[in-house]
Design a protein around this nucleic acid. Structure first.
Lengths: 177, 177
DNA sequence: CGTTGTCTATCTTGTGATAGGTAGATACGT
DNA sequence: ACGTATCTACCTATCACAAGATAGACAACG
C-alpha cells in the first residue's frame, strides 16, 4: 500500500534525485516541500535508504510500464524503439532532467544498502524489454547499446544544457533500426 | 604552479569524485588519506568549490591531452576513434570508474559555482577534437553521439558491474567508423 | 481502546570553514 | 655574520550548521 502522503514524498524525492543525486535533498527538504515535519517523513520511510529504494522501484515500474508491450504483433521494432526514445526525449523536454537510474548508475557503489540492486533491476528489465522489442531485427546494436546511446545523450544534453545530443540520438537510432 | 601536495590532494579527490560524485568525500577524508589535517587542505584549496574546479580542469587537460593529435596525416578517423574508445575502456578496466564529467554531468545543476562551466569546457574540447578527428569521414554519427555512446556505455558498465556495455560500444563504433 | 499521522524536542555525527599559532626556510639590510 | 622580516606549510581548536534519526506526546478516527 502506498498512501497519498507517501506518494507526495516520493514525488519530491524523485524529482530532486534526478536533478542532483542522493545528496541533493534531505528529510528536512522533503518535509518543507510538502508542509510537514521531518520526523513525519521518517514515520512513512524509516530511513533514507528505504525512501531511495522505494523511489527507484516505483520509477522502474513506471518507466518500463510506460513502454507498453514489447511484442505487439502489429508493431515493428522501429515503432517500439521510437516509443523508448520518446520516453527519454519527453523526460528531457518536460523535466529537463535525466533518467533516475542514469544519475544513480554512475555512483552505484556509493549508494546505500539495497539500492544498487534496484538500479540493476531497472537495467535488467529495460534490457529484457528491448531484447523482445528488437526480436527479428538484424542489427549490430545490442539492447544495452541502445540504452547506452539514449542515456549517454541524455546526460550530455543535461550537462551542456542543449537538446541536440538527445534529439540526435533519437534520430540516429530510428535511422538504423 | 601545482605543488606535490596539491597533486596528492587532487589525486584523491578525483578518484573519489569519479566513484561517487561531489559528496563522496570531505576535507577530512582527503586529509586522512594523505596524512595531514583538514585545515591544511583548506590552505591549499580555500573552498571545496576551488578544489572541485581544479580537479575538473586538470582532468579535462589530461584526458583531451592523452588523445593526441586529431589531425595527424598518417592516421584515419578510425584510428583516432579507436584511441578515444581505448581511453574509456582503459579507465573502466583499470579504475572501474567513470569519466569524471559523466558523473558530474548528470548533476550539473547541483554542483557549485564555476564547476558547471568547467564540465561544459570538457565537452566542448572533446567535441572539437572529435570534429577534427572525423573530418572527411562520411557518417550519420555526430561527434556528440560518439561521446554519448561511450559515456552511456561506461555508465551502464559501472551500474551493472559488467564490462560488456563499454566493450560493445567500442566494437560498434569501430565497426561503423 | 487502538491505530494513524503528526508534532516538539533532542541527540549524535559529520560537514565546510575560520582563527590563530608554530617550525622551518628564504631573503635582505646593515 | 647577524638580526629582522616574510613566506610556506602545516598545526590545534573551534565554530555554525545541517544531516539522519529517535523518543515521547498529542489529537483524530474507527
Amino acid at each position: 500500500m502506498t498512501t497519498a502522503r507517501e506518494t507526495e514524498i516520493m514525488d519530491f524525492a524523485e524529482r530532486e534525485m534526478r536533478k542532483g543525486g542522493l545528496d541533493a535533498f534531505s528529510f528536512r527538504d522533503v518535509a518543507a516541500a510538502i508542509g510537514i515535519k521531518s520526523a513525519s517523513v521518517h514515520y512513512h520511510f524509516p530511513t533514507k535508504a528505504d525512501l531511495v529504494q522505494r523511489v527507484i522501484t516505483r520509477y522502474a515500474d513506471r518507466f518500463v510500464g510506460s513502454l507498453g508491450a514489447a511484442d505487439a504483433a502489429d508493431e515493428t521494432p522501429h515503432d517500439r524503439v521510437a516509443r523508448l526514445a520518446d520516453a527519454y526525449t519527453g523526460a528531457y523536454r518536460q523535466e529537463g532532467c535525466s533518467c533516475l537510474c542514469t544519475v544513480l548508475g554512475s555512483v552505484v557503489t556509493y549508494i546505500p544498502d539495497g539500492s544498487p540492486d534496484k538500479v540493476r533491476d531497472f537495467y535488467n528489465r529495460l534490457s529484457q524489454w528491448l531484447t523482445t522489442a528488437l526480436e527479428g531485427k538484424s542489427t549490430d546494436l545490442t539492447p544495452e547499446l541502445v540504452i547506452s546511446i539514449l542515456q549517454g545523450a541524455m546526460t550530455l544534453s543535461v550537462a551542456v544544457d542543449r537538446d541536440a545530443p538527445i534529439m540526435d540520438a533519437k534520430r540516429y537510432l530510428l535511422s538504423v533500426l
